[in-house]
């Protein structure tokens, strides 16, 4: 039993979210970017269509972000790049999350040699820096392949889900609540659905928001150093590098992708923080 004092304190802590405004702003910001990324490519011009007559044209009403060195529409390119980043990051996070959670639960549940093997594999991944894993996979595949990037990022990330889920599940599996469920013979489905998943959900949401940021940044980092996706594909990091030679005459070229990266990162991090305090 908790004392009434603690109970009241706990009620107010869980009752109201501490920073509803920040959370709402983050959700709105993400919503706008996702809408832009999904709708933009459908209505805007072809991002690869060149128009060399309008080389580095400044922003106009029709082309709010101007045109790049090949006269391509920067708005259209940013929209495509944002869509690519969001989709690829979601795919990586979803894969890493499923793989990591399943492995983590299996490890805590069965223990013994299952746990030993999974732990050894995960530690091998931890020993390598995440970007190196991505680089390795990219290097093995043909240059600039989307699949290589996806596989590399997912492999680099599943370990953190695995480790967190394993530690947390081991605690839950040892709890009195699970012991009671075993005595009631409620079966493994009940334990996963009622005990493990509800307990893991908040952590997973936090990790996933952070994972989105990591994936998007890793992708653009690789694009920026030209080992990720290859031109002429529109990719945020790649766009930044390509715009560099022209930053004195056409600064809007590099500002647009940087702004998108910045807003995405801020929004996901805010979501993660409000999830932690909620």
């Amino acid at each position: 039993m908790t004392s009434p004092l603690l109970a009241t304190a706990a009620d107010t802590a869980t009752g109201g979210r501490r920073r509803p405004l920040a959370r709402r702003t983050a959700i709105a910001g993400l919503g706008v970017l996702v809408a832009f990324a999904l709708v933009g490519p459908l209505v805007l011009a072809d991002p690869a269509a060149q128009d060399l007559d309008r080389y580095l044209q400044g922003p106009t009403l029709l082309e709010p972000l101007g045109r790049d060195e090949y006269g391509r529409s920067v708005v259209a390119r940013v929209a495509h790049a944002t869509r690519l980043s969001l989709l690829l990051a979601s795919a990586c996070v979803a894969t890493a999350l499923l793989l990591g959670t399943a492995a983590g639960i299996a490890s805590a549940w069965f223990g013994g040699w299952v746990d030993a093997v999974l732990r050894a594999v995960s530690e091998a991944f931890v020993a390598l820096p995440a970007l190196l894993v991505v680089l390795l996979v990219s290097a093995l595949a043909s240059g600039g392949s989307l699949w290589a990037l996806y596989l590399g990022l997912a492999l680099a990330q599943w370990v953190e889900y695995f480790r967190v889920v394993r530690a947390r599940s081991a605690l839950v599996m040892g709890s009195a609540a699970v012991e009671a469920s075993r005595l009631l013979e409620l079966g493994p489905g009940h334990i996963v659905r009622r005990h493990l998943l509800p307990d893991l959900r908040p952590v997973l949401v936090t990790l996933a928001s952070l994972g989105m940021v990591t994936s998007i940044l890793a992708m653009s980092t690789l694009g920026f150093v030209k080992v990720g996706l290859q031109p002429p594909r529109a990719e945020l990091g790649l766009m930044i590098t390509e715009a560099f030679p022209f930053y004195d005459v056409a600064p809007w070229l590099s500002i647009a992708p940087i702004a998108v990266l910045f807003v995405l990162t801020i929004c996901f991090l805010t979501l993660r923080d409000s999830e932690e305090t909620a």
Partner: peptide, 12 residues
């Protein structure tokens, strides 16, 4: 259990 709060899954 001594503490019934621990004997139920706490988040459902």
């Amino acid at each position: 259990y001594q503490d019934p709060g621990l004997a139920f899954p706490r988040r459902v």
